[in-house]
């Protein structure tokens, strides 16, 4: 099986020669930037540099998929947010939120031409042309609740979600539309799989009730509107909402190692849900501060626990050592 067939089969729950290894969230590191001659901040803003750096996921790390972008600000920027650059070492973040609760936000007709979106699409085209026949290309978008949060700021988003939920609905509708339009443009440019990061719906931030009433319905709408397989990623301990997430209908769920995987799979099978889980490696404790030996043990445990694909559980810190990342792929190959 080549990487493409392996990932697509695993996403459908079909048999594979070995579990695919991917990195659902950002995984560029300083070592890759030096080696590939493509570094932040240019690689956040220029399609050619973005593609060159993303290529490292395949050529240097040996993953079954590559991924763009490296930050989570393209939608917010195109919807009017002011973005703060973080130079060579960090990722851009939202500096000024464009709206306040009570505003009636509008979807701009030229959304796909705004900000750095044309460059992001260009990066996907370059990847498709160069390695698209060998490896899966993941296009990353940001989930509806998270884009909405970036539009109004987190404090007001949380306050209003709890007290006057109807007032966040216009932002959720806009955010869902923006993400889905971007996702389908990424697919048209050559992306095989869309990863939806909806990190603001972590239970570190919202309650299960808010997840169910304000996040899940828009995620569901988004997945059904995207013309490709989808992976949802949410951070943190999600035991209380795992089946709710599955019922929104992504192709697979990416989680951090703090989630009780066995419990989730048990609950899925009780409800007749067949949903591949992706993850297994702790990006901070193991990949950043651990050793290859610790990575190896964690990967072995992840395979035993029932992960269908192995991946870092969230964004990889850019200073993580290359040898730790390589140990993920090596372990899975050896186990086979």
């Amino acid at each position: 099986m080549n990487s493409r067939d392996r990932v697509l089969a695993a996403l459908k729950g079909e048999a594979v020669d070995r579990p695919p290894v991917i990195s659902v969230c950002q995984h560029a590191t300083y070592e890759q930037m030096d080696e590939l001659g493509a570094a932040w901040p240019e690689a956040h803003a220029r399609g050619d540099k973005m593609a060159a750096l993303a290529m490292g996921g395949f050529t240097m790390l040996g993953l079954d998929a590559v991924r763009v972008p490296f930050c989570q600000t393209h939608e917010a920027e195109a919807l009017g947010a002011k973005i703060k650059d973080a130079g060579r070492t960090g990722v851009p973040s939202v500096e000024v939120h464009p709206y306040k609760i009570g505003d009636q936000p509008q979807f701009p007709d030229d959304f796909l031409e705004r900000g750095r979106i044309p460059q992001l699409l260009q990066a996907v085209r370059i990847l498709k042309e160069n390695i698209g026949d060998q490896v899966i290309i993941i296009g990353g978008i940001v989930g509806p609740y998270t884009v909405a949060t970036n539009l109004v700021g987190i404090d007001d988003m949380l306050r209003t979600s709890f007290k006057k939920p109807e007032k966040v609905v216009p932002f959720l509708e806009l955010a869902e539309k923006a993400g889905t339009v971007l996702a389908n443009a990424l697919v048209e440019a050559g992306a095989d799989v869309i990863c939806v990061e909806d990190m603001m719906t972590s239970l570190d931030l919202v309650s299960p009730k808010i997840y169910r009433s304000l996040a899940a319905p828009y995620e569901k709408k988004q997945f059904s509107g995207i013309n490709a397989p989808t992976i949802i990623h949410i951070c943190g301990k999600l035991d209380a909402i795992m089946t709710d997430i599955a019922e929104t209908g992504p192709s697979a769920i990416s989680i951090e190692p703090v989630v009780d995987v066995k419990l989730a799979l048990e609950e899925f099978s009780k409800k007749g849900i067949k949903m591949p889980l992706i993850g297994g490696v702790d990006p901070v404790r193991t990949l950043f501060s651990g050793t290859p030996e610790e990575v190896r043990r964690e990967v072995e445990k992840a395979l035993e626990d029932g992960f269908s694909m192995i991946s870092p559980g969230c964004s990889v810190a850019p200073a993580s050592p290359l040898e730790n990342l390589l140990a993920i792929v090596d372990t899975v190959k050896e186990k086979k």
Partner: peptide
């Protein structure tokens, strides 16, 4: 309690 409740209570 989750975070939204703590923010509102503090307000």
């Amino acid at each position: 309690y989750y975070l939204p409740q703590v923010i509102l209570a503090s307000d």
